[in-house]
């Protein structure tokens, strides 16, 4: 591993880790339920990126598979939660 890529993976992981903090704030504090769902959505996106960065660091394929699973299950979770909040039409006749 060249020191340049080593450095870049650390910085990228730090950025993504910092990016998880506002998303966590939205999950905890809301204010509305849809904010929490949006926070969760952006939290799993960040987690996926973090795993991909780890995968580049370690040059192993295991992280990729976990990232793929997070992508699939995160989507299902977000859609289920959003669908739960939704019981109506949007454009009124």
């Amino acid at each position: 591993m060249s020191s340049l890529v080593d450095c870049a993976t650390w910085l990228a992981a730090a950025c993504i880790g910092l990016a998880m903090l506002p998303a966590t704030w939205r999950v905890i504090r809301g204010p509305a339920a849809q904010d929490r769902v949006l926070g969760l959505d952006s939290l799993y996106m960040s987690a996926m990126q973090m795993l991909l960065v780890f995968g580049i660091r370690s040059a192993s394929g295991v992280y990729f598979e976990v990232a793929l699973l997070i992508a699939l299950f995160g989507f299902v979770g977000s859609v289920a939660l959003a669908k739960f909040l939704l019981r109506g039409e949007v454009i009124e006749p």
Partner: peptide
């Protein structure tokens, strides 16, 4: 190494800026 490092930095920074927008 150079493109990988640049792409990683760009990706991390974009995610961070988007997340600041969330706040």
């Amino acid at each position: 190494a150079v493109p990988v490092a640049l792409l990683l930095l760009a990706g991390g920074l974009l995610t961070l800026v988007g997340s600041i927008g969330l706040l």
